[in-house]
Amino acid sequence: MSTTATVTAPGKWWSGGKSPFNVEYGKLMMWYFLMSDAFTFGAFLIAYGTTRFASNGWPDPNKVFQSYPGMPEGSSAPLVFVSIMTFILIISSVTMVLAVQAGQEMKKKKVVINLILTIIGGLAFLGCQAWEWTHLHHEGAWWGSNPFLNADGTQSSTNFTNFFFTITGFHGFHVFSGVIINIIMLIMTLNNVFEKRGHYLMIEKAGLYWHFVDLVWVFVFTCFYLI
């Protein structure tokens, strides 16, 4: 305890009567939940990396992910569709920040508009992912089956598809939960729950979760599509 007194924080923070971290309990717990979730995703991605490092060959993501809806037969457009998905998630993260800020200013109408935009962004992302999964499934890719050859033309194992579907599936499930949470927040806002409570802290917690989903996508996107 004595060490804290030497830092910028005065000793009174730890002597009771004041919140030492100066955040609401629920928000702090949301942070710790997200930290544990980061370890879950981290374990998945590191397992993927370890397997990739232990393999002599690996499929080329630019050959696997080269399609988008309505693409003419025989052409290829690597990275295009996933870039759109990435931008959708970034934009929905921005609208979520705006909803949180509007909540801090107690502007109900602005909160509602930005929450709706965030929900639309989340649904758009899920739609894109559903299309991509369906497309890959039609090409013969699924858990336990991998139609793609390694980048050097050798036979690949099913590790690639197993990790891809497990990790993007786990992330997609997080997006889905986030959309549900945001819809609940929207309903609560429309019912004036937060107006009566006098603060919009609940939106901030939902916002933390939503940003985390965006954060995880940054890693998943880089690990699977770019590298």
Partner: peptide
């Protein structure tokens, strides 16, 4: 940038940042 600014961690108290 996402954690620091969107999730606001940069503006929290230092001890809390450290626990995360």
């Amino acid at each position: 940038y996402i954690v620091g600014y969107f999730m606001h961690l940069k503006h929290e108290i230092r001890n809390m940042i450290m626990t995360i």
